[in-house]
């Protein structure tokens, strides 16, 4: 198989509040022999909030990010569900609306760029499942996670709206019964845990505006995983990770029950199974201690 190569859109948290996610992404890519070209010029995607204030500005900035992936002639790979949604949504809107695309390109031309629509956009989760292949990952596992019950937490923006997400990755992920993360857990040798909240919202995007709502959603998610006898949780989204890893005190108060579980980034879970060290995967950067390694 030809070596896989992607343009990496890191998003902001990988540079700030989830450094471990960046470390684990690079470690796993290295193990799998995937080449990642970082889009150092990329801006913030607006995280589903900038568009509430200025939708056109959000489109222009996201189109600029995609234009840089196009310059490399590569598929853009994201490592944050919300980056994935915002970028893929921009692509969808521009590819289906010539007038809007022309308006956005008029702005991009001011800085010598053009959005063409030639690069695909996919999340690293789907890149390793669809392009690299679950079977090959399975073959490369040296330290299977066979002692663990692992609760997958999918994160809204990778699975909804399905119509959009199915344009951007090959596997059909049904938002009411997603399977990608469960399949990956099993490929890594673990047991995947089924629970009601696995495809639900963590509350991250309303944390400041609606703190009670956000805290209850976080609490419900962790409680659901605990009640299903999970040893830990895993998520492909750094924003879900922040919520589930750092906010369990507020969540526990909000739902009136002490809840807490270690939460791994999807890349950290794969990295462990592939034999990366906990230092390579940044496991010391978690607020909720990863107590099993």
């Amino acid at each position: 198989m030809e070596k896989l190569k992607y343009a990496l859109f890191t998003g902001c948290t990988a540079k700030e509040s989830t450094p471990e996610q960046m470390m684990a992404t690079l470690a796993v890519a290295n193990k799998l022999g995937i080449e990642l070209v970082e889009l150092t010029e990329a801006s913030c995607c607006g995280a589903s909030h900038l568009q509430d204030y200025d939708d056109f500005l959000s489109l222009v900035l996201n189109a600029r990010n995609i234009a840089y992936a196009e310059k490399h002639g590569l598929t853009m790979v994201t490592i944050c569900n919300t980056c994935q949604l915002n970028t893929a949504m921009t692509k969808h809107r521009l590819d289906h609306n010539a007038e809007l695309k022309a308006k956005v390109n008029a702005k991009l031309s001011e800085v010598g760029l053009e959005y063409k629509g030639t690069s695909q956009i996919t999340h690293f989760l789907y890149a390793i499942i669809d392009d690299f292949g679950l079977d090959k990952i399975k073959e490369m596992v040296v330290k299977p996670l066979s002692q663990f019950n692992i609760a997958p937490f999918y994160g809204c923006h990778n699975i909804r709206p399905s119509e959009l997400q199915n344009e951007t990755h090959k596997g059909h992920e049904n938002p009411y019964k997603p399977t990608s993360l469960d399949d990956l857990i099993i490929a890594c040798g673990g047991a995947s845990v089924d629970y009601e909240e696995k495809n639900k919202c963590c509350g991250f995007h309303a944390e400041l505006q609606a703190p009670r709502t956000a805290a209850i959603l976080t609490g419900n998610a962790v409680a659901g995983a605990m009640d299903a006898n999970a040893d830990w949780m895993v998520t492909p989204c750094p924003l879900c990770h922040l919520k589930l890893d750092t906010q369990t005190h507020h969540a526990s108060v909000a739902i009136g029950r002490e809840v807490s579980l270690p939460v791994l980034h999807m890349q950290q879970m794969v990295g462990l199974a592939l034999g990366c060290t906990s230092a390579e995967l940044g496991l010391n950067h978690h607020v909720t201690k990863v107590n099993f390694v």
Binding site: C12, T13, K15, E16, S17, A42, S43, C44, G46, A47, H49, L50, D52, Y53, D54, L57, L61, L208, Q209
Partner: peptide, 21 residues
């Protein structure tokens, strides 16, 4: 807090390109 949260992204992006969390 809600409106400033949306507007704050524009300020941050203009200053750093990235979001200053």
């Amino acid at each position: 807090v809600a409106t400033r949260h949306a507007v704050g992204f524009a300020h941050s992006i203009e200053k750093h390109g990235l979001l200053d969390e």
